[in-house]
Design a protein around this nucleic acid. Structure first.
Lengths: 236, 236, 236, 236
DNA sequence: AATGAATGAGTGTTCATTCAT
DNA sequence: TATGAATGAACACTCATTCAT
């Protein structure tokens, strides 16, 4: 599915020409969409949708502005492609991780958070969170797409973790749907923060401490009875 | 003043009134800033800074574009005024509430959240959260202002609650700084959500359930030992 | 593909020409600056800086307003380019002429004036004098540039003529600096006049007579003793 | 005559009201046009017509912008009033001086130049020269008015001086019309210079030396035979 | 495929002018 | 008379988009 989407995004460039001598150095050509998307991601994240000039995107990708239009019919589609391309792969890793994990649910949560940190929050990708929130009003279909393909899946994933924990007696009973939303909030906020106030204000947020407190608070909030999220063996 | 407005409405065609000849404009110097700010808040929140046209702001405030410039020297200052005017009063109410409260800390937290919901989240003011995050890159000084005058004070407030609870033995020991940040995240996220995905996607978030789970999770996460945040009388 | 494009063009109603289908615009990168500068000179001279609309400049140059901005970053720079481009070459011709001249100084003065008439005064370039005087207050740096690159050099040139004449005994002794300024005035004024009152008032100034009287007066004013500027051979 | 003109300029403010109680402190009211004209002169001279804002004129005159419109129907009329009011009185003094003078014509010329210096060039009034040249294209009627009422009369005056000198044998024969124009040029240029380059460039023009050279050059250029304009008694 | 010159609709801002008070 | 709030036409400048090459 992801592949299909990708193919669609790449604006099929008249690829039926017969006499193309199949040069061995076409890598450039094939890399174009990626380079453009990468440049666009940088700039959209840095400046926001409206303030990003296609001139700059093209320049940063090392092509002319006209070339950009060979691959994306307009700014809007470029923006959507940026979001789609970068977002979809994100979720899958986590899903696989959760699927295969066999330890206790607290540890699973820890691992997931760790993965999000490494693959998203601590990455320029986290800027997409800000973009989506900022532009959801102007790109409702895109927001819907993001909601369905990313947020919902992430929520579903965390819901499965919660239910797993509850089923195994590790977590107390909670209302899954809303608890998932609450538990997600600090992760998303961290992404937003690093792409907003962290950039203009004296660094006031220590990400590691934040995440530690987050996991600590979440797990103790979820803990069953006297179950406390301490390293195994330390429970009374 | 209300009457004046009425007069205006009655001036609609076939107005049989003999005097009050439908002035081209009304002189309402004192009311203007408020009206303009209100219109601007609506539009900035709805469309974002760049996509908001001053024509529309003026039109929605019922004045011409030129009039807008009598009160705000440019779009940027209008934006700043919107943020400043609406924000600062918010914090003060909470601070007072916390100052005067004498019950247990869990209840204090509940009250605060309740107040935020009523006065901010469930209000168009919550759009300012989105604005500040979206535009922090383009208005760093404003972001700094917001950070210092709003976020920091809100954090300080919550820190005082935490410390109060820890001092009274109601809350377990936590790292205050980072815990405060984590605990704030779901509140802010709720504001953001209601100004982004809630508007374009099928309502998937039940705010009441969300806040309940939030408080529940937070309090159980903070609870000391066997201390559990249950309705009074059920504590052992 | 090219055919497809053509098809589109031929869809134009009643177009009987089969080829050369009147392109929406022409690509004339090298010619543009010249055309724009020429149009701008016309309009600046005719209407003054403020009253000249860039729309009109572009239209007169046969391009769109956007194109103008491809070549000049703003109105001010366009104005400066107009002045710079047209002015400097002017001075050089005179300097060369004076350098190479070997006859008597009166004749040199006549030749210079003749040259100024042909290459400047009797040309739309003379409008630049008016421009510089009119806009010196608003473009002080440009005025300084003009003063240094044009006026000072012209003054220096005329000073050299005076000193040459004094050295050769043709001219009486005068205070060079101020005499130069006085002698320049009628030349500049003629330029100004032709770009101001001559355009709105019944032609009251006969340029040839004016220049004749000017040279006559200047030379007799400068003449040494009984030296009178009469055709050679008539000197006693 | 001047009074008549003046009355016209002052835009007769509903002066037929009968019940005006003739307050003794109406000086203010009557001074308004003068104050406005004075402020306008300052600003027009300093900034030029287009760049002068009526806000500023009103402010500098100490009235509101609306008041300005009680006296002048629009910016254009204000501009014309400024020119007219300041210009007309100028010529008359010179005319009277020339009429009554009885000495030799060289001395008359000296006196006239002296008067122009004191009453015009060395005054903010000289800015009007720049204004008229700058705006002649946009205000042709005004230019025509200025040409007829000022320039022509000044030329006529100087023509009479020339003819007087020629009739008395003090000046050689010259073509009066064009010589007058040439002789006027340095005087006007001095005015222009002081309102343009003198303001932005290092003072390079010594007005006294300039005027001395001017008179010296003019008189020696006009001198009859061996007549040289030196202090009496020094002629050979 | 790629270019980049050209376009023109769109918007922030200014300011002369109006008019109810 | 005098005020100053309000107007709206005008204009400089931007930038996404087009298209001949």
């Amino acid at each position: 599915m992801a592949m299909q989407r990708n193919r669609k995004l790449m604006a099929a460039p008249h690829s039926t020409t017969t006499h193309a001598p199949a040069p061995r150095w076409e890598r450039r050509k094939e890399a174009r969409p990626t380079e453009l998307l990468s440049a666009a991601l940088d700039l959209f994240v840095e400046k926001g949708y409206a303030a990003t000039r296609l001139d700059d995107v093209a320049a940063q990708a090392g092509v002319s502005k006209g070339t950009l239009y060979l691959y994306y019919v307009n700014k809007e589609e470029l923006f959507k492609a940026v979001v789609r391309q970068n977002i979809v792969p994100l979720v899958e890793h986590s899903e696989k991780l959760a699927d295969e994990f066999e330890g206790d649910s607290a540890m699973l949560l820890r691992l997931l958070v760790q993965g999000w940190w490494e693959r998203f929050i601590n990455t320029r990708l986290s800027g997409i969170s800000k973009l989506m929130i900022s532009e959801s009003g102007n790109f409702p279909e895109l927001a819907r797409f993001y909601h369905d393909e990313v947020i919902q899946r992430a929520h579903a994933l965390m819901a499965s973790v919660l239910e797993r924990g509850m089923a195994r007696g590790e977590f107390r009973y909670v209302d899954v749907r809303s608890t998932v939303q609450v538990l997600h909030a600090p992760v998303v906020m961290l992404s937003l923060w690093r792409n907003s106030f962290d950039l203009c204000c004296a660094k006031t947020l220590d990400a590691q401490a934040y995440l530690n407190s987050y996991v600590d608070l979440a797990l103790s909030g979820l803990s069953n009875f006297d179950y406390v999220d301490r390293p195994p063996g330390k429970n009374s």
